[in-house]
Amino acid sequence: MGIFDYFKAKKTPSSASVAKDRLQIIVAHERSKRHQPDYLPQMQQEIIDVIRKYVEIGNEDVQIQLENTDDCSVLELNVTLPEQN
């Protein structure tokens, strides 16, 4: 860093701390998916297809989550139905 750099305002966070924040988020996200069974994405798609037979929904309207606690696993399914006219 030369003398001229000292005049530049340095308000933005360093690129290394941005990198660390981004990594912590993505790594935590990927770790949470690591223990989910391989069939989950396909099951999600099939559930969406079944619901679509009856109601018009988008892919993002079905959230599926598997949570493991000590002695049981909970499959959480959250379907957002469109507003009725």
């Binding site: 290394a16 701390s17 790594v27």
Partner: peptide
């Protein structure tokens, strides 16, 4: 580069992994 915030530090990587 770590000293001027341009590179992840040892502790950063240890924290993440």
């Amino acid at each position: 580069r770590v000293a001027i915030g341009e590179m992840l530090s040892v502790t950063d990587v240890e924290d993440i992994l």
